[in-house]
């Protein structure tokens, strides 16, 4: 996360895929992805669809799989931007982290409401097993499944 600063960092969130409505969705792994944006990388990110396709296909019959995405807002707020919301897909958890050159300052997690077509904030906390550190990629984040 700090390595990419002042550009945006982004990546995948993995967790149990079969989570029922309203149940906390544990995130067991965060894996960095390449930011494919070529312009405005300090305020934009894009993850390769081919890579997402590959990861989804590999995890097809596995209990743990891709359940969401994270990205950073360098010197920006730890909440979703309108662009984040506009480009979001249902079901996934979106974790957004505010970072500066000192590390992660704040974060927020969201999921897209299909009925409202807008982001709904979800409770997000670091579980006791993982300490809060400057690199949340190594921590466990939890939020409701939907």
């Amino acid at each position: 996360m700090r390595g990419e600063y002042p550009e945006e960092a982004c990546g995948y969130l993995f967790g149990p895929r079969a989570i029922s409505e309203g149940v906390a969705r544990p995130i067991v792994e965060a894996r960095p992805a390449e930011n494919e944006e070529t312009e405005g990388r300090d305020i934009r990110y894009r993850i390769s669809s081919a890579e997402i396709y590959r990861i989804e296909a590999e995890a097809e019959d596995q209990p743990i799989g891709l359940v969401g995405f994270y990205h950073s807002h360098p010197d920006g707020p730890g909440r979703a931007s309108r662009r984040d919301e506009r480009l979001a897909w249902p079901w996934y958890t979106y974790l957004i982290l505010s970072v500066d050159d000192g590390g992660v300052r704040d974060w927020g997690a969201y999921t897209l409401s299909v009925s409202r077509g807008s982001f709904v904030p979800i409770d997000c906390r670091v579980s006791p097993e993982g300490p809060v550190g400057p690199d949340p990629g190594r921590d466990r984040f939890e939020g409701p499944g939907r």
Partner: peptide
């Protein structure tokens, strides 16, 4: 799904 977004 194409995944993208960005800071305000």
């Amino acid at each position: 799904p194409a995944i993208a977004g960005g800071a305000p």
